[in-house]
Amino acid sequence: MMALEHITLIIGSSLILLGLWGLITQKNLIKIVISFTLVDAGIHILMISLGYLKNRTAPIVDGTIDNAVEQIVDPIPQAMVLTAIVIGLGITALMLSFVIRLAKDKNSLNVSNFKDLKW
């Protein structure tokens, strides 16, 4: 029987691979941004499952928990992912603004049409 963290590790890493595949193969600029968000979600799942410990509760200490060290999961990856999600939204918005400007200049969304720096 596999443990929960192994399953989520597999899911997260396959999301990362799928997103990278999309990043390389897709031609549409918006599809590329979508693939980037998929990679983002995969990395978040990976980090959270690395901090998971078996048979423990969330890192919130209330009256029912007397010995916190023995009973909670690791709080540090959760804090890191919390910041990473918000920054991911900012980066997505930034990329979309670049896409809008590019589409305005060339009137196209296809990556193959942008060859100003190609020689």
Binding site: T8, A41, I45, Q78, V86
Partner: peptide, 19 residues
């Protein structure tokens, strides 16, 4: 939902609201 199963409710809330 996976974050909730991995006992990370904070992250689950953030992902549901923002992602």
């Amino acid at each position: 939902i996976l974050f909730l199963l991995l006992s990370a409710p904070d992250v689950a809330m953030t992902e549901a609201a923002i992602g």
